[in-house]
Design a protein around this nucleic acid. Structure first.
Lengths: 341, 341
DNA sequence: TGATTTACGTAGAACGGTGCACGAAACGGG
DNA sequence: CCCGTTTCGTGCACCGTTCTACGTAAATCA
C-alpha cells in the first residue's frame, strides 16, 4: 500500500494568484471564468491577460464543491467489448461540442463493482452519468438517479422513471435475423446465449432471445425453437463450442446473442472444417469490426453505436437542463449480410 | 450547450452528518476514515456504526483539496486498440489490491488532445498518472511530471528524468521477427509502418523499424531492406493495401508495425486470393486476440500487456512513495508463430 | 503522591473555487 | 439637482474534506 507523498510542490497557480497578478478580487476572476453577469470589458481583459500569462487552470475538484465540474462520467462494461468504441465516439462528439469533458470508469460486468464505480463518479462530482451496458438492477439505478442525472445505454428498463434509456430495438433486430434465415430456407435455427433471461430480463441478450422466440413462432417454427445456453464466463469457451459443433444434432443455423460469441464459434467451425454457410449458418449481433474481415465475413446486426452514443449524450444534457420525465428511445437495428448466412 | 441545473438535491450525507449522528467532532470522523493515530475503540465503533447507518461515502473531490484522492488517472490512446485491454487489466490488478481507484481518459493519438487530458486529470486531483502509448513529446512530459507522478507505457523516452517508462523491447521484438523470417529462408522482407521515425522517434513503431533495420543488416540482408510507409490515418486503408498487394514488386514477406495494420492487410490478401504464407508471409505486433482466430492465424509479437500494466502501476506507486530517480524497464517480447509465417 | 508521559478528542485554519448580498459609481429622467 | 436604476466590483460565507495544534484525562514513573 502506498502511503508517503512525494514533493510535487510546483505550488499551483490558483485563482488567488491570478487575482493578485491582475490586481482584482478573487470573485472578479471567478466571474470572468464563468462569464457571469457584471464584468466590464476592461476587467475581463486584465483578468484574461493574467490567466494567459500564468497559465491558470481552475481546479475541477474545487469547482465541483459548489458549482459544476463540466465533466460527464461514462461507465463502460469492460474495455475489450467491440460494441463500445462506436458508442464512446458518439458520446464524445456531442460532449466535446458542448464543452464538457469525459471521465471513464471501466466495469467488469459485475453489478457490485459497477455500483462502486457509479459511486466513485458521484464522489468525483461528475455532472451526469452515461452507463453503457450496465448490469445494475433497475431499482438501484433509480436510487442513484436521485443523486445525479443518468442515462443508460444497452439496457432495457422501459419502465424506469428517474433515468433515460437508449437502445437499439433488440427484439426487432433478433426478428430480422430469424426472418433472414427463414428467407434463405432455414428452419432449424438455434439461439445461442450465455444469460438466463430471468436473471436480468432488461439486458440485451434476453431481449434478443425474446425477439427470437416471437419471430420463430410467427414464422410457424415454434417446434424448431432451440436455446443453446452456455455457462456464463469470460474465459475462452473452445470446449463448449467444440462439443456443440461435433454433437450429432448440431443445428443448421445459429443466431448468436453477440459477435463476442459468434466469432469464436466461427473460429471453432473453421478449425473443425465445418463449412460456413453450407454446413452451418451463423449470424451475430453488434457488427464488430472483426466481423467485416473478409476471412471472417460474419453476418451481424448493426446497432449504429455512434448514433446511440449521440442520442444518449443529448438525452443526458436535456435531463441536466431540467427535464424530469423519462425518455426511452429505441433505434432501428440493421442486419448486415455477409458470407456466414 | 447545457446550462441549467436540475434539482438532484438529495442533500448528501457529509462528514458533518456523520459527526452529528455519532455525537463526535468532524475531526474524529475524519480520523476514523483515514485510520489515523489517536482513536479509541469506543470512538471508532460509534463512528463506524453511524457511517454504516447513514451510508456515508467521503467526497473524493473534497478530499482531494487537502489530502489524496486515492485515484490514479490512466490515459489511453484510443478505445479500440487491441493492445490496451491487457495493459489496463494489469494496472487494475495492482491498483485494486492497493485500494486505489482508476479513472480513465481516452485520447485520440493527437498530442494536443492528450495534453489537455493530462491537465484534466491533474485538475481532477489524481494522485498519479499512467500514460499508455501517449504521443506527447518528452519535454512536455517532464513539465507535467513536475506536477504529478507519471509513468509512461509504450513510449521509449529512455533519457527521461522526471518520469518512468515501461516497455517491451520493441527493437528486440522486431529482431525476433526478422530472425524468424530468415530462419524460414525468406530474404525479401519488408517493414510496413505508418509513422515517420523523425516525427516521434520515441514511439513504438520507429523503435520496431530500428530493430528491423539492424536485424536485416546483421543478417546480411541490407540490400533487401524496404520500408513501406503508408500515409498516416485511422481510416480503413483498403486501397493502399490493394495497391501494395497487386503491385508487381510485391514483397515476399511483410513485417507490420502492428496487428492494427497486419490484420486488414491479411484481409486484403485473402480477398485477392493471395495465399498466406505460400505467396506472402505476414507477421504483426501486439498479438491481439483477433490474430489468434484460426481463420486469421496471424503470427505476432506478444508484449505481455498485463505484465506491462502491473509493472507500470508498481513503478507509479514506488514513485508516489518518494522515489526520485527514474526507472526505465524493458521486458522481453515473445514471437507467437501461427499460420501466416 | 506529584510530575511526566501518553492517549484521546476537538477547534479551526486551510484547500480552491462559487455565488449571494452588498456598496459605490455612473446614468438618466423629471 | 435630486433620486431611483443600472452597472460593476468586492467581501464573505459556503462546499466537504484534511491535518496541525492544542487541551484534557488517564496512565506511568520515580
Amino acid at each position: 500500500m502506498a502511503d508517503g507523498a512525494s514533493d510535487h510542490t510546483q505550488s499551483r497557480v490558483t485563482i488567488r494568484t491570478v487575482a493578485t497578478d491582475a490586481g482584482v478580487s478573487v470573485a472578479a476572476v471567478s466571474k470572468v471564468m464563468r462569464n457571469a453577469y457584471g464584468v466590464s470589458d476592461a476587467l475581463r481583459q486584465k483578468v484574461e491577460a493574467s490567466i494567459e500569462k500564468l497559465g491558470y487552470r481552475p481546479s475541477v475538484a474545487a469547482r465541483g464543491m459548489r458549482g459544476r465540474t463540466f465533466t460527464l462520467g461514462v461507465l463502460l462494461v469492460g474495455i475489450d467489448n467491440p460494441f463500445l468504441p462506436g458508442i464512446y465516439q458518439g458520446i464524445e462528439s456531442v460532449t466535446e461540442a458542448a464543452g464538457y469533458k469525459i471521465m471513464v470508469c471501466v466495469g467488469a460486468a459485475r453489478a457490485q463493482t459497477e455500483a462502486q464505480l457509479i459511486e466513485q463518479m458521484i464522489d468525483n462530482r461528475m455532472d451526469g452519468l452515461i452507463l453503457v451496458a450496465s448490469q445494475i438492477a433497475g431499482d438501484t439505478l433509480e436510487h442513484y438517479a436521485r443523486q445525479i442525472p443518468i442515462v443508460v445505454v444497452g439496457h432495457h428498463e422501459t419502465s424506469a422513471v428517474g433515468y433515460d434509456t437508449i437502445n437499439n430495438d433488440d427484439q426487432r433486430g433478433a426478428a430480422r435475423v430469424v426472418q433472414a434465415f427463414v428467407d434463405q430456407g432455414y428452419r432449424d435455427i438455434a439461439f445461442l446465449t450465455q444469460f438466463e433471461p430471468d436473471d436480468h430480463p432488461a439486458d440485451v441478450s434476453p431481449q434478443r432471445e425474446l425477439g427470437y422466440l416471437d419471430a420463430m413462432r410467427a414464422a410457424g417454427l415454434a417446434d424448431h425453437i432451440r436455446i443453446l445456453r452456455l455457462p456464463q464466463s469470460n474465459a475462452p469457451r473452445e470446449q463448449d463450442f467444440h462439443q456443440l459443433l461435433t454433437s450429432p444434432d448440431r443445428p443448421r443455423a445459429v443466431f448468436c446473442w453477440s459477435d463476442l460469441d459468434a466469432i469464436p464459434l466461427l473460429g471453432a467451425a473453421f478449425r473443425l472444417g465445418i463449412r460456413v454457410p453450407q454446413d452451418l449458418a451463423i449470424v451475430g449481433y453488434d457488427n464488430s469490426p472483426v466481423a467485416a474481415l473478409p476471412m471472417v465475413a460474419l453476418s451481424s446486426v448493426d446497432q449504429d453505436g455512434p448514433h446511440l452514443g449521440r442520442l444518449s449524450a443529448e438525452a443526458l444534457f436535456s435531463r441536466m437542463n431540467g427535464r424530469k420525465v423519462a425518455e426511452h428511445i429505441q433505434i432501428e437495428p440493421r442486419l448486415i449480410k455477409r458470407g456466414s448466412l
